[in-house]
């Protein structure tokens, strides 16, 4: 377990999952805009992208830990 927390992929993944989740929630709740966006909910969409990248980073080391235990 201690090893997981020293794994850079896990740390990076976790951070992006948190960022992604915040952006998704904020996008859904507020859908903030700038004049250029014309209604596009970019916080929501970019939150999804960030979350997916976070999951991709985090799953490798997590599986490694499960295999060993």
């Amino acid at each position: 377990m201690a090893k997981l927390w020293l794994d850079l992929r896990w740390l990076t993944g976790l951070m992006f999952i948190v960022y992604g989740a915040i952006l998704i929630v904020y996008g859904l709740a507020v859908n903030p805009q700038t004049p250029y966006l014309h209604g596009l909910n970019i916080d929501l969409w970019w939150g999804v992208v960030t979350l997916v990248i976070g999951v991709l980073f985090a799953q490798g080391p997590l599986r490694g830990v499960k295999k060993n235990s």
Partner: peptide
């Protein structure tokens, strides 16, 4: 400033 709304701007 032109493209990023709050949230994305934070990122």
């Amino acid at each position: 400033q032109r493209y990023f709304p709050p949230g994305l701007m934070g990122l």
